[in-house]
């Protein structure tokens, strides 16, 4: 079984990769990717069952904060039934999204901004080194130089010269360097999987 799954993974991986370079294989590549899309949709359903199992287990074993799990399951079932009965474009379903899900996510975003500020303050307590100081000073400089100070507005030297130089030359150069490293890492990781050195699809 181990060899069969590895064979199929390698064969289909190579076919999809070859589709980018050999025009004759493009239709086959599109077909395989569309199959993968269908499998991903099925995976979404499995994911929902996984969510139900995990939270059901929490309720059954009366784990700490299992009340939230009950709330999640009740909301999930209600939304699912409403969606089935009314359809996703019905005003009630739109209302669920716009009145519950979006405000909750917006609240989390607000908490995130405070959390980030707090993390930045805590950074020097956790790691006192040159890079941490440079990181914090850069953040502060970019933020400060982005401000328009009344009544002067944006400070000419900082706003027009130093900030663009810092963000578009130094920071962008560093970001490109990191992205090149990430791209090379992703390339070799993909090749390892294509050669079955790593098998995220199971097997010893």
């Amino acid at each position: 079984m181990k060899y069969v799954s590895a064979f199929f993974a390698i064969a289909f991986g190579l076919l999809v990769l070859a589709g980018y370079f050999v025009p004759v294989l493009e239709p086959l590549q599109a077909l395989l990717i569309s199959w993968a899309g269908i499998l991903l949709a099925v995976a979404s359903l499995i994911g929902v069952f996984n969510l139900i199992t995990v939270h059901g287990e929490k309720i059954r074993s009366r784990e700490k904060n299992s009340g939230y799990s009950s709330l999640l399951l009740v909301s999930l079932v209600l939304t699912f039934l409403l969606g089935l009965a009314l359809g996703p474009s019905h005003p009630v379903m739109q209302g669920v999204v716009e009145s519950i899900i979006l405000p909750v996510e917006a609240s989390l975003m607000a908490i995130l901004s405070v959390t980030l500020l707090y993390a930045a303050i805590r950074l020097l307590r956790r790691r006192v080194d040159v890079m941490s100081v440079v990181f914090l000073l850069t953040v502060l400089a970019v933020l400060a130089w982005s401000l328009a100070l009344p009544p002067y507005g944006e400070l000419a030297l900082f706003g027009n010269t130093l900030r663009p130089w810092l963000t578009q030359v130094l920071a962008l150069g560093g970001a490109r360097g990191i992205l090149i490293g990430v791209a090379l890492g992703a390339l070799t990781t993909g090749l390892r999987i294509l050669l079955a050195f790593d098998r995220p699809y199971g097997g010893k």
Binding site: A119, L123, I178, L179, G181, G185
Partner: peptide, 21 residues
């Protein structure tokens, strides 16, 4: 990249760039 900056500030031990791989 934005998440790397966040992890640099918020995680005790951040991995930078290709260190992840």
């Amino acid at each position: 990249l934005p998440a790397q900056a966040v992890l640099y500030a918020a995680a005790q031990e951040p991995l930078i760039g290709e260190e992840l791989f």
